[in-house]
Amino acid sequence: MLEVMDLSKKYGKVRAADHVSFTVPDGRVGILLGPNGAGKSTVIKSIAGLLRFEGQVRIQGIPSREKAARKIFAYVPEMPSMYDMLTVREHMEFIRRAYGAETTDQEVEELLARFELLDKQEKLGNELSKGMMQKVSICCALVIHPQVILLDEPMVGLDPAAIKELKQMVLELRDRGATVLISTHMLEMVKELWDITFVMNQGHILGSYNREQVGDEDLEELFFAVTGQEKKDQTAVGQEKEDLTVTGQEKKDPAAAGQEQNGSAAAEREQKDLAATGQEKQDSEKGSSNAGEGGQ
């Protein structure tokens, strides 16, 4: 389980994350969505322990900075960086030793084979392309058999075969009871993966949605409805286009909302609540984005 509790981070006077709270339970795939500059990377880096922050992050109930938490936690950053003078195989070996993982050589080979890296295992880090680096980064994260894994834009730079493999891997991790959190812009790529979605903007969690409660609703629509952004490819969505347009108008003028559209009920409810109470959006979300509670 991954618990983020009241996480805040300031860069100078700018609050990149403001009292962010959410939970991803065991055996679930969480998706962190948000436009550029929403604060996703700040949250991700804070969870990974790369930033100083206020608040708490717990991994399987253990504070994230503790060794026991780090041993069961894996992180795939957005921009992979390899050691120039280690080969692919040596990267895996190094991680295995650093985490004290009891992964066998055969398991390592299987991983490399799944991501088509077997013939590249003797290549040095500085000889790899961006896509290859991403694959190695994913393999290094998986080699420790993590209980909680954090993937920041993991599909960027991957070829279709690797994306398919990664999706399969995520589902396998979930089925094994691991907690997965993916931060991404590529909504299409995570459509079939997500169990819980957290939508972020301007340093706040605007809403959290549970798949069972939202049903078959399109992730894209949820995202655009909550963030108030326009979906550009509107001609392609037929009737949904009208729904979305109406939703968009309602978002701009929450007080005038007269009806709940099926596609974005949660977001609209939130907007109406805000309009009614006169509170700022972020205040309404403070500490209340627990995925277990489902949509707002």
Binding site: A48, K67, A68, F73, Y75, I95, Y99
Partner: peptide, 12 residues
Amino acid sequence: RRSDAHFLFPSP
């Protein structure tokens, strides 16, 4: 190096 930030800092 960036590789340290990637592999070392989040490690145990």
